[in-house]
């Protein structure tokens, strides 16, 4: 047994990693269960940066990643679009990566087209697409957008797009949101855009796990918020999902004539909505049971799985991390025992 462990074939480790990832995926896929997430200050700061802006603010979303890192970055990109769409921000999509346009289209289809069909292309959101040149593109559009972008991704001239009216460069944006998998990405946006115009440009970012340590030095001045890998995505997703439900409930309850105090009390914990609405002071507000049922249905409706991708991926990450810790401990035990026996482990 000891010899077997000492000369463990790496294919056994590959098999263990395969099981550590695939079994939680299957269990979470069947049960739909996710782990609770407690947001870290950086995830909260990212959410607040978008939330504090008034509805209709201009947000530049640069999705600088490709399919290779979509598993890690896709969920946070979806949540960014989800928050912007719910808040009513104007979304300007672009990418510095040649494979990025499809990432933008996927998120537009996933969030805007399916859940926010009232948002109009060219009025509420626009896809500027990809331009070659990496940081060169940033350097140009930060002072003159039209030197780089004469048309959007559909070939429509920018002058014909209503939401591009009056936008000479990206300094007109209220916030830059960057989802980055490497070069060109968050570091280049910080160096060539935010650092060049610190009084005008603000930025939040989401990045891969390997990038995160390199981006911490830019917090909090150049980067207001940062989502690191799938953990950051899960935390941010959790905040956005909770807020979206509350925001929709507030709108619905406001339409039914509830005052601000009552609304605040009711949306505090939507899971208790049904029992709270039984109290006479709330129950008397409803003209019919249909409205009451609609409020309860909204409060208790399960979150669409497409908005839980980050949280669902924390399961496989947990087991994989535990396996890694176990392997490191086992490797060290073998090392120290071998050394104690005078071996050359």
């Amino acid at each position: 047994m000891w010899n077997w462990l000492n000369n463990l074939d790496r294919r056994w480790i590959f098999l263990m990693m395969f099981l550590a990832v695939s079994i939680p995926i299957l269990i979470i896929g069947v049960t739909g269960l996710t782990f609770p997430e407690t947001p870290t200050p950086l995830a909260q700061a990212t959410f607040d940066a978008l939330d504090e802006l008034p509805s209709g603010s201009k947000i530049l979303l640069s999705f600088d990643y490709d399919p290779a890192s979509e598993g890690e970055l896709g969920p946070m990109a979806t949540s960014f679009v989800h928050q912007c769409a719910q808040k009513g921000h104007k979304m300007y999509f672009m990418t510095l990566w040649p494979l990025g346009p499809r990432m933008i289209e996927k998120n537009i289809e996933k969030v805007i087209t399916s859940d926010y069909p009232d948002l109009q292309y060219g009025v509420d959101y626009v896809n500027l697409g990809y331009r070659a040149g990496n940081e060169g593109v940033i350097k140009v559009i930060v002072t003159d957008l039209q030197q780089m972008y004469l048309t959007d991704v559909r070939g429509v001239g920018l002058k014909e797009i209503p939401m591009m009216d009056g936008i000479r460069n990206i300094q007109a944006m209220d916030l830059i949101v960057n989802v980055s998998a490497g070069y060109a990405g968050t570091k280049e946006w910080v160096q060539y855009a935010v650092s060049a115009f610190p009084d005008k440009l603000r930025m939040v970012a989401g990045c891969t796990g390997v990038q995160a340590p390199l981006l911490y030095p830019y917090i909090p001045d150049q980067l207001i918020g940062l989502l690191g890998a799938i953990k950051g995505a899960a935390e941010y997703e959790s905040i956005v999902n909770t807020w979206v439900r509350r925001d929709r409930l507030e709108t619905m309850l406001g339409g039914l004539g509830f005052d601000q105090g009552q609304i605040a009390e009711l949306v505090q914990d939507p899971s208790t909505m049904s029992s709270m609405l039984d109290e006479p002071r709330f129950a008397d507000q409803f003209k019919n049971t249909k409205d009451r049922d609609a409020v309860i249905a909204l409060a208790e409706a399960p979150v669409d799985p497409k908005y839980l991708e980050g949280q669902r991926r924390m399961g496989p990450q947990l087991v994989a991390h535990l396996l890694m810790v176990g392997l490191i401990i086992l490797g060290n035990i073998i090392f120290f025992v071998g050394r104690g026996q005078g071996g050359a482990a």
Partner: peptide, 16 residues
């Protein structure tokens, strides 16, 4: 990458 990291962690990550 996950598979190779796991293998490397077992073989190389030692408290020497």
């Amino acid at each position: 990458l996950a598979f190779y990291i796991a293998s490397a962690a077992f073989r190389a990550f030692r408290a020497k």
